[in-house]
Deep mutational scan, measured.
Amino acid sequence: GPGLTDLFKTEKAAVKKMAKAIMADPSKADDVYQKWADKGYTLTQLSDFLKSKTRGKYDRVYNGYMTYR
């Protein structure tokens, strides 16, 4: 089956995709945050998933999740 690194890459891609969806349409934020909360994502995990070469690119999404939880 898929190894943990593959799983991480898949999760990371999914999280980034959802983060971009929030940035494009902030009204989606609560739905996405709820999904992440259901998956039990911690802020540390989210921070790892949303690492970007562009500093602060996903800060709004991260901060939103922090206040959501």
Rank of each mutant, 00 (worst) to 15 (best):
Glu11Lys: 04
Leu4Val: 14
Ile22Ala: 07
Lys35Gln: 13
Arg55Cys: 13
Gly40Gln: 06
Tyr68Gln: 02
Tyr41Pro: 00
Ala37His: 14
Tyr41Glu: 00
Leu50Thr: 02
Gly3Val: 13
Arg60Met: 14
Lys12Thr: 08
Thr44Arg: 13
Leu4Met: 13
Thr44Lys: 10
Asp25Pro: 00
Gly56Ile: 05
Lys9Ala: 11
Phe49Arg: 02
Lys39Glu: 07
Tyr58Val: 02
Ala21Thr: 08
Lys57Tyr: 09
Asn63Phe: 14
Thr44Glu: 13
Arg69Ser: 08
Gly64Ile: 02
Leu46Val: 08
Arg55Gly: 10
Val61Leu: 04
Gln45Tyr: 03
Ala29Ser: 08
Thr5Cys: 15
Asp59Trp: 11
Lys35Asp: 12
Lys39Arg: 10
Pro2Lys: 11
Gly56Gln: 05
Tyr65Asp: 02
Ala19Leu: 02
Ile22Thr: 03
Tyr68Ile: 02
Val15Gln: 01
Tyr33Gly: 00
Ala24Glu: 09
Lys51Cys: 14
Met18Ala: 13
Asp59Lys: 09
Ala24His: 08
Leu4Pro: 14
Met18Trp: 07
Ile22Pro: 00
Lys57Arg: 09
Lys28Trp: 05
Leu43Trp: 04
Leu50Ile: 03
Gly3Glu: 15
Tyr62Asn: 03
Lys12Cys: 09
Glu11Pro: 03
Ala19Tyr: 02
Tyr41Cys: 02
Thr10Lys: 15
Leu46Ser: 01
Thr5Tyr: 05
Lys51Ser: 13
Asp6Gly: 06
Gly64Met: 03
Thr10Phe: 08
Arg69Leu: 15
Ser27Gln: 07
Asp59Glu: 11
Lys16Phe: 05
Asp59Thr: 08
Leu46Pro: 01
Arg60Thr: 14
Thr54Cys: 11
Arg69Ala: 09
Asp25Ala: 04
Pro26Tyr: 07
Ile22Gln: 00
Lys20Glu: 10
Met18Lys: 03
Met23Thr: 03
Asp6Asn: 08
Val32Gly: 04
Tyr68Cys: 03
Lys9Asp: 10
Asp25Phe: 05
Pro2Arg: 09
Val61Phe: 02
Tyr41Trp: 05
Thr67Asp: 15
Ala24Pro: 01
Lys9Phe: 07
Arg69Val: 15
Arg69Phe: 11
Thr54Trp: 09
Asn63Glu: 13
Val15His: 01
Ala19Ser: 03
Ala37Tyr: 14
Lys28Ser: 08
Asp25Leu: 03
Pro2Ala: 11
Gln45Asn: 10
Ala14Pro: 02
Thr5Glu: 14
Met18Thr: 03
Gly64Glu: 07
Lys20Tyr: 06
Gln34Tyr: 04
Ser47Phe: 10
Phe8Cys: 13
Pro2Glu: 12
Ser27Val: 04
Asn63Tyr: 13
Leu7Arg: 12
Trp36Ile: 01
Ala19Arg: 01
Thr67Tyr: 14
Trp36Asn: 00
Lys51Asp: 08
Gln34Phe: 06
Leu7Gly: 12
Gly3Tyr: 04
Ala13Lys: 15
Lys57Pro: 04
Lys39Pro: 01
Thr42His: 03
Asp6Leu: 05
Ala19Pro: 01
Leu7Ala: 14
Leu46Cys: 02
Lys53Ile: 04
Lys57Asp: 05
Gly1Glu: 12
Lys51Val: 11
Met23His: 03
Thr67Pro: 03
Pro2Leu: 09
Val61Cys: 02
Met66Ile: 14
Lys39Ser: 11
Ser47Gly: 09
Ala13Arg: 15
Asp25Lys: 04
Thr54Gly: 06
Ile22Trp: 00
Asp59Val: 07
Lys35Glu: 14
Arg69Asn: 07
Lys57Ser: 05
Asp30Gly: 10
Gln34Asn: 06
Gln34Ile: 04
Lys16Arg: 15
Ala29Pro: 01
Lys35Arg: 09
Lys35Thr: 10
Lys28Val: 13
Leu7Pro: 14
Val32Phe: 04
Gly64Val: 02
Trp36Met: 02
Thr67Met: 15
Asp6Phe: 03
Thr67Val: 13
Thr42Met: 03
Val61Met: 03
Thr10Gly: 10
Phe8Pro: 07
Gln45Asp: 08
Lys9His: 09
Tyr58Ile: 02
Pro26Glu: 09
Lys35Leu: 15
Met23Glu: 03
Ala29His: 04
Thr5Ile: 10
Tyr33Cys: 01
Lys57Glu: 10
Val61His: 01
Thr42Val: 02
Glu11Thr: 07
Ala21His: 06
Met18Phe: 05
Gln34Glu: 09
Leu50Tyr: 00
Ala37Gln: 08
Leu50Val: 02
Met23Lys: 04
Val15Cys: 05
Tyr68Thr: 04
Lys39Cys: 11
Asp30Asn: 12
Ser27Ile: 06
Gly40His: 05
Ile22Leu: 09
Tyr65Lys: 00
Met18Arg: 03
Ala13Asp: 07
Thr10Tyr: 11
Tyr62His: 03
Gly3Phe: 05
Tyr68Asn: 03
Lys51Gly: 14
Ala29Cys: 06
Gly56Tyr: 06
Lys35Asn: 11
Lys16Gly: 03
Ala37Asn: 08
Leu7Met: 12
Gly40Val: 01
Val32Ser: 03
Tyr41Phe: 06
Arg60Ser: 15
Thr44Leu: 12
Lys28Leu: 13
Asn63Trp: 14
Gly40Arg: 04
Ser27Tyr: 07
Tyr65Met: 02
Gly64Leu: 02
Asn63Thr: 10
Lys9Thr: 05
Tyr62Asp: 01
Gly64Thr: 01
Ser27Arg: 11
Asp30Glu: 12
Leu7Trp: 15
Arg55His: 11
Gly1His: 11
Ala29Met: 05
Thr5Pro: 08
Thr10Trp: 11
Lys28Cys: 14
Lys28Met: 13
Asn63Met: 13
Asp6Ala: 06
Lys17Ser: 08
Leu50Asp: 00
Met66Asn: 07
Ala24Arg: 14
Arg60Glu: 15
Leu7Gln: 15
Lys28Pro: 01
Glu11Phe: 04
Lys51Asn: 10
Gln45His: 07
Lys17Asn: 08
Val32Cys: 05
Val15Glu: 02
Lys57Ala: 06
Asp31Ser: 11
Leu46Asn: 00
Lys53Asp: 12
Phe8Arg: 12
Tyr33Gln: 01
Met18Ile: 03
Lys9Met: 04
Thr10Arg: 13
Val15Phe: 03
Lys17Ile: 10
Gly40Phe: 03
Lys28Asn: 08
Tyr41Gln: 01
Ala14Glu: 14
Ser52Gly: 10
Phe8Leu: 11
Ile22Met: 05
Ile22His: 00
Asp30Ala: 13
Asp31Val: 11
Lys35Tyr: 15
Thr5Asn: 13
Asp31His: 12
Lys51Glu: 11
Lys16Gln: 11
Thr42Ser: 11
Lys35Ser: 12
Phe49Cys: 04
Asp31Ile: 10
Tyr62Val: 15
Lys16Ile: 15
Lys20Gly: 06
Gln34His: 12
Gly64Asn: 04
Asn63Gly: 06
Asp48Ile: 15
Thr10Asp: 13
Lys17Asp: 05
Tyr33Lys: 01
Met66Arg: 10
Lys53Val: 06
Lys35Val: 12
Leu43Thr: 06
Ile22Asn: 00
Leu43Met: 10
Tyr68Ala: 03
Ser47His: 13
Thr5Trp: 03
Ala21Pro: 01
Ala19His: 00
Ser47Leu: 07
Ser52Met: 05
Thr10Cys: 15
Gly40Asn: 07
Ala14Cys: 15
Asp6Trp: 03
Leu43Gln: 04
Lys9Val: 07
Ala24Gly: 07
Tyr33Ser: 01
Arg69His: 06
Asp6Pro: 12
Leu43Asp: 05
Gly1Cys: 15
Leu7Val: 08
Lys39Ile: 11
Tyr41Ile: 12
Leu50Pro: 00
Tyr33Phe: 09
Tyr33Leu: 01
Met18Cys: 11
Glu11Arg: 05
Ser52Asp: 11
Leu50Cys: 01
Lys9Tyr: 09
Thr67Leu: 14
Tyr41Ser: 01
Thr42Gln: 03
Leu4Tyr: 08
Met23Val: 06
Trp36Cys: 01
Asp25Asn: 13
Gly3Met: 11
Val61Ser: 00
Asn63Ala: 12
Phe8Lys: 12
Trp36Ser: 00
Pro26Ser: 07
Lys57Gln: 08
Leu43Glu: 05
Met23Phe: 04
Thr67Ala: 14
Asp31Gln: 11
Arg69Pro: 03
Leu50Gly: 01
Tyr41Leu: 10
Ala14Trp: 14
Val15Gly: 01
Lys28Tyr: 07
Asp30Thr: 10
Ala37Gly: 04
Gly40Glu: 05
Phe8Gly: 09
Ala29Asn: 02
Lys17Trp: 07
Lys53His: 09
Thr54Leu: 07
Lys39Phe: 08
Ala29Gly: 06
Gly64Cys: 04
Asn63Val: 12
Ser27Phe: 05
Pro26His: 05
Gly64Lys: 02
Tyr58Lys: 01
Phe49Ser: 02
Lys20Pro: 00
Gly1Ile: 10
Asn63Pro: 02
Asp31Glu: 13
Asp48Ala: 15
Lys9Gly: 08
Glu11Gln: 08
Ala13Phe: 05
Ser52Gln: 05
Val32Lys: 02
Gly1Ser: 12
Arg60Pro: 12
Met18Val: 03
Ser52Glu: 07
Asp25Thr: 04
Val61Arg: 00
Thr42Pro: 02
Leu7His: 15
Gly56His: 09
Val61Glu: 01
Thr42Asp: 05
Tyr68Arg: 02
Lys35Ala: 12
Pro26Phe: 07
Gln34Lys: 13
Asn63Ser: 10
Gln34Val: 05
Tyr41Arg: 01
Gly56Met: 05
Ala14Gly: 05
Leu43Asn: 05
Ala29Ile: 02
Lys9Cys: 13
Thr5Gln: 14
Asp25Cys: 12
Tyr62Gln: 05
Thr42Trp: 02
Lys12Pro: 03
Lys39Trp: 09
Lys35Cys: 14
Ala19Met: 03
Ala21Lys: 08
Ala13Ser: 08
Lys20Asp: 09
Asp30Val: 11
Thr54His: 11
Asp48Leu: 13
Asp59Phe: 07
Tyr65Trp: 03
Pro2Met: 08
Tyr62Ser: 03
Lys53Leu: 04
Pro26Gly: 05
Lys20Ala: 10
Gly40Tyr: 03
Leu50His: 00
Tyr33Asn: 01
Glu11Cys: 06
Ile22Cys: 05
Val15Trp: 02
Ser52His: 09
Val61Asp: 00
Asp48Asn: 13
Tyr33Arg: 00
